[in-house]
Nucleic acid binder design. Sequence first.
DNA 1: CTGAAAGCGCTAACAA
DNA 2: TTGTTAGCGCTTTCAG
Lengths: 338, 338
Amino acid sequence: MGRVRLIDVAELAGVSMKTVSNVVHDYPHVAPALRTRVQAAIDDLGYRPNLTARRLATGRTGMIALAIPEIDHPYFSELSRRIAEEATRRGYRVLIEQTLSDTVAEHAVLKDREAGLVDGVIFHPVRMDAIELATVHKDTPLVLLGEAAIPSTTDHVMIDNVAAAKEAAQHLLALGRRRIAFLGVVDGDITVSTNRRLVGYQQALVEAGIELDPDLVLTVRDFSPESCADATRAALARGLRFDGVLCRDDKFALGALQGLHRSGLAVPEDVAVIGWDDTALASYTLPTLTSIAPDKPRLAKVTLDLLEERMNGHQGVGRHRLVPHSLTFRESAPELPR
Amino acid sequence: MGRVRLIDVAELAGVSMKTVSNVVHDYPHVAPALRTRVQAAIDDLGYRPNLTARRLATGRTGMIALAIPEIDHPYFSELSRRIAEEATRRGYRVLIEQTLSDTVAEHAVLKDREAGLVDGVIFHPVRMDAIELATVHKDTPLVLLGEAAIPSTTDHVMIDNVAAAKEAAQHLLALGRRRIAFLGVVDGDITVSTNRRLVGYQQALVEAGIELDPDLVLTVRDFSPESCADATRAALARGLRFDGVLCRDDKFALGALQGLHRSGLAVPEDVAVIGWDDTALASYTLPTLTSIAPDKPRLAKVTLDLLEERMNGHQGVGRHRLVPHSLTFRESAPELPR
DNA sequence: CTGAAAGCGCTAACAA
DNA sequence: TTGTTAGCGCTTTCAG
């Protein structure tokens, strides 16, 4: 424990606590002589201010909580990094909270866990919906991420999933593909995100005058690449044919690549593949993966902007921000020649 | 802000603060009548204890800091998850700190950043060495991870890198490979970890009576898979031949897989590949990747054990723990038939 | 420009 | 079993 306190420094330097505090905070109007004397005492004793005490006194903690489903999901770990960097830049520290998509854990995030611990919360819900979120009494500034819940009372940031999915599907169409699959819907657990993406996918097909084939929407056991590989092979094995796949995210796309390869199909020659999130994974694969790229730095910036305004007292209804996205072209669904 | 305080509840319920505190903490000896009355007041006012104040009073923060090079590196994000889970189980919350392998940031971790903020620190250094670490005055319990620095004064947890590298190389030998490369040494930036792994690799070869060929230790530009792919292709292009590669970590191995594939070589037929860290990446690749697997859950457990003992007042010299590792067999270097 | 003292909200020793 | 009260270490008016 930092045994040495402000008052110890004050006594050694023969000044009051206030003066020491002034020196610690680089308050300009301190007599140079005093300043050096105090500084010497500080160094001498190895004094470091107790942050907890400072917090109690100021009411500010300088920390924000980031609650995400999984720390080690590539998208969330990359997003966390961006948010942590942006927060650091603004003088905040980030407390990362893992909900594991658990309903209880998600409620806990908004309940007493953070009281007086952080100045604000960034929360990417999976289970809680808008209604639940709206009814929780929240006394800490909050910004929501993702598509799961968009209560009108709360600030919220996301990308336009419908538009992004549509653009991706249109790119596959532009590559001349006509039988385009969607991978996938997790059995018995369709999330809002998946749903939005599916809508965009269907819009693109319909607008292109292609009849929807429900069989082309593949179902998978769970969120693992393995189950996506299995689903892909099984679909192929039962005679389903397609020449393009839009995947729910990059992990699903990796599964698709594995499944296609093991079924003897070539990517992108036989089947073009598009992933989602543009995580580092996309450059690690063979072939490399074309992927929908949310603008993560911008996402981090906009989120922190909103949160900081709230922390500075901004009141009013929830604000809703759409962050840009793009398509990062790689080998699995190359850019059109132009 | 949680405007309502303990004393507000006490007044409303017509009891003392102590009684309210007892109820909040589920202290058993409280008259049932009082308990319900107090609980009603708590619910009524929506009281939530201010954690910062509690901390100041108790001197315990219930938080530990985890300082790692990069949040979004697969190994560290997986390790973070394990540590966060283990910590949660023990009633701690984890503050994740990203150093980006920066010397200044690493020093900051041990300096004033954490004072009075966390009860303990878990730190995976990259730049700081044992000498530097030993000279920093640390007044917060600390456990070190990794191979970079092993000061005798501080608790420390790692796996036996030399032994692990040796076993991996021996597996390649058992597969009948004789020209085994090591990928790779980052140009101008050899880390201690890389060094230990290289030693183990060499020991295995020497013990097998194979002459060391310095050319087989490949140099790469940086830590990216891309540069590893390039290095692999370049080596092959200049006529270097090998039938096995031991990689510094899984990301390097992905680069090797890419480079080999693009050079027209088959894995594992032409070249067997082994990665390191056994991250999720290893099951995502084509072929899937055999990888050295540190026992991450155990690593988390042992680390928290040591840290908790320190936080509970354990004094004494640094303790040094070796955590088990194994080889997870996948396609890139299959298990021996038996 | 510097000092004195009143909190910040909660805990825990000590009383009752 | 419940109440009183003195801190925890720092910040911050308000005087001087």
